[in-house]
Design a protein around this nucleic acid. Structure first.
Lengths: 394, 394
DNA sequence: TTTCTTAATTCATCGTAAAAATAAAGCTGC
DNA sequence: GCAGCTTTATTTTTACGATGAATTAAGAAA
């Protein structure tokens, strides 16, 4: 982006973000919040109205003078598709600018290779758009969340437990079937973006999202920006070492946090305790019924999780931790030992600084998170590009 | 900052940073690297020359036409004082814009209360400035690094092992004696800033600095910005849980990483092994002489450190880890078990992504780091302020 | 020499935001 | 019910700052 347009783009984005988080809001208040002049706000909001991203909603109440004209996000100003990809199925959601789901769909895969999965997925997306009958020109793109390590810039799935995929250029595969840009990221990152844009992280600059389910994941927001690490792999909380002599994890390492907390491992440990359970729900029910063996499994999981979260608190000193994922239905049984672990292993001031909230989750919300990956582009504040690092010859 | 001046300030900072990291450099090359027009570069560099931050160094070699005039940082364009504060003494350094030490001093304290220490320190700073005879109008301020948890914005030492201080407004205390602004931060953070500005982190956007000495510290740079956490406490690597049944740490928790790796604990463990050692150097010498008991202490320390670093790699997927601190003199004896721990507990791609470097350290370098705290203000790229979060009532 | 190339500056122009003036609309008080 | 005040929004004027083109500077190639 040329330098000339940069300032305007920044201001435009700032205003859009203010309207998103404070709207409906009058132009004067926008000027106050952004420290821009009223004249600038008039001009920039006019552009946003032209683009259909905001609209003049209604007149507010007078505060002693002319009644303000309240500006609000036009939810139908943009649409995106979010995809949560699992091993043998995917959940799709069409959402509006507020990440509200307009149309959903599930698809079962009979195939397992990336090429075929992408082709099948593309069919479903076309179908989804036809069913919804939204203005196609307002479609911004496809966001996709996947378990594993993703190089987001390249749109490549570097390493995933799904079908043991390695180095799959999934964004390109999908784009070859569709006319929309495809954004790919780790599914915990997409969920974290959703929390940042629309959830508990809206007004927090430093927070973490911990997901518990078939695995254990971590989304990191530092200074208001999602942190992805050198090559997109940041946040492998499930595979930090907890017990060097622990069982061999699916990742090939020993004693990862996941081997204490993730659902497949909870089941395995329950069976070792002599319990006859086949699903995570079975295990939760057993614990609900005060089965001591089940409670023991959860108690130990809580201890391990507490140690993991304590590690996070000591390293990040976060303002907020959001615990989410399918596994939170069992959290009641983990809570005591988890909090004990945190209390015992964190500095008191850090415990005061952090607010821990729990949030249930389902496939829809995952897909909505994936949609947020695209929506985050709309609200993204363009920053100055850092200078190129090497002199290009001649 | 008013919006009008923002773009210019950003461009000015961008150019200054390019000159710092690529200088001496011709204006045309600056224009190429920054994507600014040659005319803009001429104007902005003229301002920087006026301010004395850069100067026209010499003419470079012609590349077929007029010889370029190379611009370089004017090291004497700004001076700062860096202070490394210890329990009973402090190390002071006056540095130029390149963080090169011009004058140094050490001061021993006979007092222990913060008020008196600040007063004594102020005397020394005045003395240091008199000795050095630098242009006082070019003094930017005092940077101070302290062990402990620091709220940098407030300049308050929240919690420190030094004299068991709690909630000390040290920046204010020192400012009351001096005419320069005082910046206070955790000493590992100041060191990390030095690495970012002048060291191995210059061209890396995501890196970590691990320090080993009397404690174990961590500096975190994410997206090119030093991350400090919600209230300045981020990076307590020394107090992440390693062994829930471990010894009681000075912090009151059990089995912190420090109890395996920090120097006082190495000595304690050596004595338990029957060794007669009084200083860390004694212990290193014993290990140098292949004493099995000493080697055992270091071997176990390496294992614990490996686990700690593995945790970091899994969570941050960093491009670089710099290991530093007084303790690196013993690193040779830790290295094998440390690397084994990393290898065994990290994903292979992450190990490929990260470069681990080791860097020795002394009090001078700590003080230079503290100076970088002030210097980082000079090179800081002003960003758009995020809008205020709450509407102020009419 | 002449001509071409690269470097740096000058000058006119244009985009953008600020400041000031104006218009619109409602409240308050007599 | 109307004058005068307040608040909101827009229009006009002004100033700043970056761009692009033209110009000057200085060396290399032929």
């Amino acid at each position: 982006m040329a330098r000339r347009q940069l300032l305007k783009a920044i201001n435009r984005s700032t205003i859009l973000n203010v309207i998103k988080s404070h709207g409906p809001i009058a132009r004067t208040d926008i000027a106050r919040l952004t420290a821009l002049s009223p004249a600038a706000v008039t001009g920039l909001t006019a552009g946003l109205i032209d683009n259909g991203l905001i609209y003049e909603q209604e007149e507010g109440n007078s505060r002693g003078g002319r009644r303000p004209i309240l500006l609000a996000l036009d939810a139908s100003g943009a649409y995106v598709v979010g995809v949560k990809l699992d091993e043998d199925f995917a959940t799709l959601a069409l959402t509006d600018l507020n990440a509200r789901i307009i149309e959903r769909e599930q698809v079962q895969f009979e195939v397992r290779d990336a090429q075929s999965v992408a082709a099948r997925l593309a069919e479903c997306i076309v179908e989804l758009l036809q069913n919804a009958r939204v203005d196609q020109s307002r479609m911004l793109g496809i966001g996709m969340g996947v378990t594993g390590i993703v190089d987001r810039k390249l749109g490549v799935l570097r390493m995933s437990p799904l079908n043991s995929w390695r180095e799959i250029p999934f964004a390109d595969l999908l784009e070859s079937h569709l006319d929309y840009p495809v954004y790919l990221d780790n599914n915990v990152n997409t969920l974290t973006l959703a929390e940042q844009l629309y959830g508990a992280g809206q007004h927090v600059h430093d927070f973490l999202v911990v997901t518990i389910g078939r695995g254990v994941g971590l989304g990191i927001v530092t200074g208001g920006v999602l942190y992805r690490g050198a090559r997109g792999g940041a946040g492998e909380l499930g595979h930090i070492p907890i017990d060097a002599n622990g069982p061999l994890c699916t990742c090939g390492k020993r004693g990862c946090l996941e081997t204490f907390v993730a659902e497949p491992w909870l089941l395995r440990r329950a069976k070792l305790n002599g319990l006859d359970v086949n699903t995570p729900d079975d295990l939760v029910h057993a614990a609900d019924a005060h089965d001591l063996n089940a409670l023991d499994v959860f108690s130990k999981a809580g201890t391990a999780l507490g140690q993991g979260i304590a590690t996070l608190i000591q390293l990040f000193n976060p303002a907020q931790i959001i615990i989410s994922g399918e596994g939170v239905r069992a959290l009641e049984h983990l809570r005591a030992t988890m909090h004990e672990g945190i209390r015992k292993q964190c500095f008191d001031p850090f415990i005061e600084d952090v607010e821990i909230t729990v949030k249930a989750l389902n496939d829809d919300i995952w897909a909505r998170g994936a949609a947020s990956l695209v929506l985050s582009e709309v609200f993204h504040n363009p920053q100055v590009q850092q200078p190129v690092m090497n002199l290009s010859g001649g």
